[in-house]
Design a protein around this nucleic acid. Sequence first.
DNA 1: GTTAAAATGGATGTCAACATCCAGTTAGGG
DNA 2: CCCTAACTGGATGTTGACATCCATTTTAAC
Lengths: 145, 145
Amino acid sequence: MLSQTVEYALRAVVYLADQSPAARTTGQIAAATKVPPAYMSKVLQGLCHAGILRSQRGIGGGMSLVHLPEELTILDVVNAVEPIGRIESCPLGLKAHGVQLCALHRRLDNALATVEEAFRNTTLAEVLADPNPSVPLCDLPGRAK
Amino acid sequence: MLSQTVEYALRAVVYLADQSPAARTTGQIAAATKVPPAYMSKVLQGLCHAGILRSQRGIGGGMSLVHLPEELTILDVVNAVEPIGRIESCPLGLKAHGVQLCALHRRLDNALATVEEAFRNTTLAEVLADPNPSVPLCDLPGRAK
DNA sequence: GTTAAAATGGATGTCAACATCCAGTTAGGG
DNA sequence: CCCTAACTGGATGTTGACATCCATTTTAAC
């Protein structure tokens, strides 16, 4: 239901938020997130173009967050990669429906709205601060840096 | 976020529920739902194999619902075509996480659970009984048969 | 300046989703 | 028994998501 690329992007951003405000190379990010390095490179490029990340070339360079983890939501990341795609008007193109969705599409869109809202209300900082014993991206209990 | 095939399947099932318990041909269903007939044929085949529809060949045949609209949920149809795909265990394969998802995946799965629940709680009969002025699949206000 | 680290962008490959077409099979009606 | 309606299954085509590779460009450090 969520694309693989979204999953990859979220892992990368969670990792960078954890390391924030330091920059990390594509190779480091790919290794930490267990994503194919060549593909991660493309995903990170997309996040740069979307203004989520900034990149720095050359020795000591890498990728880093443009905003603070407290100001970056899951929705920001998802929308940068592949927008939720709310149902704005009748998918059948029926003029009589227009913005007033039928019962079927109204319910589908409501479900999408719920997801969008949940994502909008969760910042990266909240994810990292979660008391959950399983730490994101980290195989061992407790945070290792 | 929901695949095109799921959208097509839902349209077909809503149409058949509206016509229930009568059978309709692939051509009739495709026309009413504005889906390419050749592809709708494949979608309907899938719904037959999943036990949502039954098919009858020959003159006077067609597709019809196996269950009553009151007993068929949106989730049944979605799962028949492309299961929601809840996150059961750590996508990174970290053994330390296992069933105990990290904060990131816990939140993603919660969002999926919300959608699954909304779909589980909506029957086709409820969709058809909705007082919404836009009638599913029907271009004009009010139901035309 | 030279060198090495690191991102960039383009070319390419693979596969599943979406879509089309048709020969074959089933079944009702005369 | 034959004809026609209708589904079935297989082959095929198209496109975008996922993925890889590499030549080029930028930049820090020496």
